[in-house]
């Protein structure tokens, strides 16, 4: 009685398009996940227009803008790392992946200080300062913490993902003929970027 290795066939037939299709479908779930929160945002912004204006003044536009620039640049570096590996330039590809991670780290540090300052000012869910304000402001900051927090969580996951990819690239498992995993990680990273592209104006620019 012979032993059959499971899915020998699966490994022979690599289907890059299928993998990318799967990744896109997964991105849709992420998109809708945030979409749900954008729905909440939209409804409360409609209900508490004035209070959202007032609350948004507390946020620092330049910090947000800086983070936007950082994330957009990191989106560029990750896409360049794919081009580099397709051109069979392993060194440059890894360099770009590391740049992406450094930029993401910068984003998180920036976010950390931003949150820290807010918390020092006594603005966090359940704080006395916040409960003293109007309902709309409580909800604005509730949304602010939940949405940027969940986004930051995605940034962290993205960094971990790219770290694994960098390892694969160094080991040669990702190479100029097989780079679909790097593409998938890239797609994820761009989605994180797109979500921030919307978070930025909705929270920082409505003063």
């Amino acid at each position: 009685m012979s032993t059959i290795a499971e899915h020998t066939v699966g490994h022979v037939h690599r289907d890059d398009i299928g993998s990318r299709l799967g990744m896109w479908l997964f991105l849709f779930t992420e998109l809708v996940l945030f979409g749900g929160m954008f729905l909440v945002y939209a409804v409360y912004r409609f209900t508490y227009q004035h209070e959202f204006h007032v609350a948004a003044k507390e946020l620092n536009t330049s910090v947000g803008a800086l983070n936007t620039i950082i994330l957009l640049t990191s989106s560029l570096t990750i896409v360049l790392s794919i081009i580099a590996i397709r051109k069979n330039n392993k060194f440059l590809s890894v360099f770009f992946q590391i740049s992406t991670m450094v930029l993401a780290f910068g984003f998180l540090v920036n976010k950390y200080f931003e949150w820290n300052i807010k918390i020092h000012h006594g603005i966090f869910p359940g704080s006395e300062t916040l409960l003293g304000k109007g309902n709309g402001e409580i909800i604005f900051f509730g949304l602010y913490y939940v949405m940027t927090g969940l986004h930051a969580l995605h940034v962290i996951i993205g960094v971990l993902l790219i770290e694994v990819m960098a390892g694969y690239t160094i080991k040669g498992r990702i190479n100029s003929t097989n780079y679909v995993r790097l593409e998938a990680a890239g797609l994820y990273w761009h989605l994180v970027d797109i979500i921030w592209i919307f978070l930025f104006p909705l929270f920082y620019l409505i003063t």
């Binding site: 593409e183 797609l187 919307f198």
Partner: peptide
């Protein structure tokens, strides 16, 4: 902006 990211960065 997200259109640009989708079309070009995300191929």
């Amino acid at each position: 902006k997200s259109y640009l990211v989708l079309t070009f960065f995300m191929h």
